[in-house]
Design a protein around this nucleic acid. Structure first.
Length: 183
DNA sequence: GAGGCGATTGGCT
DNA sequence: GCCAATCGCCTCG
């Protein structure tokens, strides 16, 4: 289990350090291979326009899950950092509970089980019910990386503001990335 | 109270 | 590569 102070740092630092960290929800999950940072004062962050009903968790203590619905049908999972910032978990490497994930996802393709923020939430059964939940307690279980990873960096995906800010991080060469990093 | 849109995905051309 | 699906939240009137 990660120390709580891990998230008492800025989102960019945490996003880089999360690559390789194992995240399990009720025992299902695997190592994080792709993240994005959304900093305080970042025009692309949900916190930019101040507190609202949806983003209230972002303004609370770090080390909690911020989960929201996107495009009316998918969920996205973030870990809250400090101050008022968050890391979007974009992809993990399926390692534990493959059969459970496949059942939830309705696909046999291991590569597509958790390759994308919406997909991994479906595979791990993450939804609004876990919004605001502390991530150092069940059903979450976060474990330090088993080995150092080579981390690639690039611009974030799918946003319309601050599109050039290089705050997307990923395990170089992983086949479970939602999109490859430019060389 | 109404209108627009999003940190996405999957299916079809 | 393009586009529909689908709805809660936010902004504006």
């Amino acid at each position: 289990m990660l120390d709580r102070t891990f998230f008492e740092r800025d989102a960019v630092t945490v996003a880089r350090d999360l690559i390789g960290v194992e995240v399990l929800v009720d025992g299902v999950g695997g190592p994080i291979v792709e993240t994005e940072a959304y900093d305080a004062g970042d025009p692309a962050s949900h916190s930019f326009h101040g507190p609202t009903a949806r983003n209230a968790v972002l303004f609370g203590p770090p080390g909690h899950a911020y989960i929201y619905r996107i495009y009316g049908l998918h969920w996205c999972m973030n870990f809250v950092c400090s101050p008022v910032s968050a890391v979007l978990i974009r992809a993990i490497e399926p390692r534990h509970g493959l059969d459970v994930m496949a059942g939830r996802r309705g696909t046999g393709s291991v590569r597509l089980l958790c390759s994308g923020p919406g997909r991994l939430c479906q595979a791990l059964a993450v939804d609004h019910g876990l919004d605001g939940a502390p991530i150092d307690a069940p059903p979450f279980d976060l474990r330090a990386a088993d080995a150092p990873r080579s981390v690639a960096v690039g611009p974030r995906i799918g946003i319309s503001k601050a599109v050039d800010t290089p705050w997307r991080f990923g395990e170089a060469g992983s086949r479970f990335l939602s999109k490859p990093f430019a060389p």
